[in-house]
Design a protein around this nucleic acid. Structure first.
Length: 183
DNA sequence: CGCATTTGACCAGCGC
DNA sequence: GCGCTGGTCAAATGCG
């Protein structure tokens, strides 16, 4: 399995706290300052396969990215029906959250299009696509086998539309993160 | 009825 | 070349 970087480690130990609006920071034009100035800067310039965590916001939240490239928008059609992305692929952003539930409400609507068993993991990986027309943002959701409270959500692409839910969720998540990080 | 989910099949990439 | 694995498709099914 590819080792996607973990952008955030957050906690939402109750289902009611599973809103993750901060995802928008890394994937849309919603305009959080640190997205452009810090996150993109770091993420765009990280050397290949760098494992060094980069801290921002506070010392307990790390951002990492592998070098998947950013020229991956080109797609080719195989001789059959499948659309296959060329490599290098789009940048991916992984969020690691501690949650009882797999489905994190990040303010966007997602449609599940696949599920696969993962090697060395007793939990399947689920594949989701943003249902907004023209927006082909994808995400994968996977629960860790060694710690089944940890849910890794991997985002690919940028939303081309505003999120459909209010930013209240974001504040809620931020407070959750602060609680988590103070532990 | 419309939309979301499930699930088996298919395809591509990679390592051996 | 072959097998394994990840990613996607699409028909069937479920649900409000």
């Amino acid at each position: 399995m590819e080792n996607y970087p973990t952008i955030f480690q957050a906690s939402s130990s109750t289902p009611a706290a599973s809103h993750l609006s901060m995802l928008n920071m890394a994937n849309s034009h919603a305009g959080a300052e640190f997205q452009d100035q810090k996150l993109n800067q770091y993420l765009g310039l990280m050397p290949p396969r760098t494992e060094t965590p980069i801290s921002f916001m506070n010392n307990n939240i790390v951002a990492q990215r592998n070098n998947l490239g950013d020229a991956g928008t080109a797609e080719v059609k195989s001789d059959k029906k499948y659309k296959v992305e060329k490599k290098p692929r789009k940048p991916k952003f992984a969020f690691q959250t501690r949650s009882q539930v797999d489905i994190l409400d990040d303010g966007y609507r997602w449609r599940k299009y696949g599920q696969k068993a993962v090697k060395n993991n007793r939990f399947p990986r689920s594949y989701y696509r943003c249902t907004h027309q023209g927006c082909n943002v994808k995400k994968q959701v996977q629960r860790l086998s060694k710690d089944e409270e940890i849910v890794v959500t991997t985002y690919e692409g940028q939303h081309s539309h505003p999120m459909q839910k209010s930013m209240e969720n974001f504040e809620h998540i931020l407070s959750q993160m602060q609680i988590y990080n103070s532990c």
